[in-house]
Amino acid sequence: MNDRPAGAAGIRRAGVGDRPVRTGTDITSSTAVRYALVPAPRLSLDAVARRSGLHPDLIRRFVALGLVDAERDGAGRLVFDPTAPAVLARIQRLRSGLCLNYASIGLVLDLLDRISLLEAALRGRGPRSETPPWT
């Protein structure tokens, strides 16, 4: 059941889903990693359509284009993360505000996600110094 002895490097394997779980005493880094104990509930296509105000066929098209992530459940129906309505709202804002086609929207979404990651990495580095790093 456990891949490592409890406490080895601060990580032990849980029995449910075999997701790593951090122990409270062995964390040496300043940032703690959090793992979900219970998987987030998945939304059906109808629930996402209701919450986003979009037609289910349009949402299926977005899934086919790769703009929204979805999985299939055991019955073959599309299921979405709880964040899908927010992603769909972002797509609609880009489409209506900038008059972008769907291929361009995919590129813009990828760039916005990359910018968010870079900004988070910069925030994690601490306060900026007054002197530029190249001098």
Rank of each mutant, 00 (worst) to 15 (best):
M1R: 03
M1N: 09
N2P: 06
N2D: 08
A8T: 12
A8G: 03
A9P: 01
R12F: 06
R13T: 13
A14Y: 02
G15P: 05
G15I: 09
G15F: 08
G17R: 08
D18P: 00
P20C: 03
R22Y: 13
T23F: 00
G24W: 12
D26H: 13
D26E: 15
I27C: 10
S29V: 06
A32H: 11
R34Q: 08
R34S: 08
Y35V: 08
A36D: 09
L37F: 12
L37K: 12
L37G: 15
A40N: 11
A40G: 09
P41H: 07
P41Y: 01
S44R: 04
L45M: 10
D46R: 08
S52N: 07
G53M: 08
P56G: 03
P56W: 00
P56V: 11
L58Q: 00
R60T: 06
R60W: 04
A64V: 03
L65G: 01
V68I: 12
R72W: 01
G76Q: 02
G76W: 07
R77L: 10
R77K: 15
P82Q: 12
T83I: 07
A84N: 05
A86V: 10
A86M: 10
A86E: 15
A86T: 11
R90Q: 11
L94Y: 05
R95V: 02
S96I: 07
S96M: 14
G97S: 06
G97E: 04
G97N: 01
G97W: 05
L98G: 03
N101V: 04
N101P: 03
Y102V: 04
Y102M: 10
A103V: 09
A103C: 09
I105H: 00
L107H: 12
L109G: 02
D110W: 08
L112E: 07
I115L: 15
S116P: 01
S116H: 14
L118I: 13
E119F: 11
R123S: 09
R123M: 15
R128A: 05
S129F: 13
E130S: 13
E130T: 14
T131N: 09
P132N: 12
P132A: 15
P133N: 03
W134T: 03
W134D: 11
